[in-house]
């Protein structure tokens, strides 16, 4: 008698459990299906829009990596090859030479090479670059803006929520399709939005 009662309770419990199980399975599947059908899917990476960037300097500090995955990129096609480069020299510099007192870059990551009178080529040593954007500010304020910040996708760990994007005051960091992972100046045309 008691046994039968127990058995009955057990089968009732089993029934309830399996009902709950299949309801949950259907709802998980439903959520998955809804998400997959309703929103866009695809692989995305984080990238900086150099036309929106205001070079606040947070990229150097906020990235989860040290040094930051943000590096300075140089669009040579846009460079004026100036002798007095606003991205290379501190403001108010007297002698145009590579002395430590003249360089804007805190880690001396920009190399200045003589091309021909009066032109100089500027290249970035990525190992030294910390992504502080000081040179970018100088170049876009006083020059062509050929120096610009980009996230080096080789270094970026593609966090679920980019720590720099969260702190970016101008919302310049957005997700871009993995098929087109850079917004390098020159290739990439300023959007009017």
């Amino acid at each position: 008698m008691n046994d039968r009662k127990e058995n009955k309770a057990k089968s009732r419990r089993d029934f309830l459990q399996s009902t709950a199980r299949y309801t949950l399975a259907i709802s998980i599947g439903g959520i998955g299906g809804l998400v997959a059908s309703k929103s866009k899917t695809g692989d995305y990476l984080w990238q900086i829009d150099p036309f929106v960037c205001t070079q606040c300097g947070r990229c150097a500090d906020e990235c989860v990596l040290t040094p930051s995955a943000v590096k300075c990129f140089h669009a040579f096609d846009l460079c004026g090859y100036c002798d007095l480069c606003g991205g290379y020299f501190k403001p108010g510099v007297m002698d145009l030479n590579t002395g430590g007192e003249n360089q804007l870059c805190p880690t001396a990551a920009i190399k200045r090479n003589f091309v021909e009178d009066p032109f100089f080529e500027y290249t970035i040593d990525e190992d030294l670059c910390i992504g502080c954007g000081k040179c970018v500010k100088g170049c876009s304020s006083f020059g062509n803006g050929s120096l610009h910040l980009q996230i080096n996708q080789d270094l970026c760990v593609n966090c679920n929520q980019c720590a720099i994007a969260r702190m970016c005051p101008s919302d310049a960091i957005t997700r871009v399709p993995a098929s087109n992972p850079y917004k390098v100046k020159g290739d990439f045309i300023k959007s009017n939005t």
């Binding site: 990476l45 990129f73 140089h74 669009a75 040579f76 096609d77 846009l78 460079c79 004026g80 090859y81 100036c82 091309v115 021909e116 032109f119 080529e121 290249t123 020059g143 062509n144 980009q150 080096n152 996708q153 080789d154 270094l155 970026c156 593609n158 993995a178 992972p181 850079y182 390098v184 020159g186």
Partner: peptide, 23 residues
């Protein structure tokens, strides 16, 4: 563009911009 790209007299060719591929 504020400072146009110069016409180099020497046969200088500017390097192309390197974009490391993501994973």
């Amino acid at each position: 563009q504020r400072f146009p790209r110069p016409d180099f007299e020497s046969d200088y060719k500017s390097p192309s911009i390197l974009v490391p591929e993501p994973r």
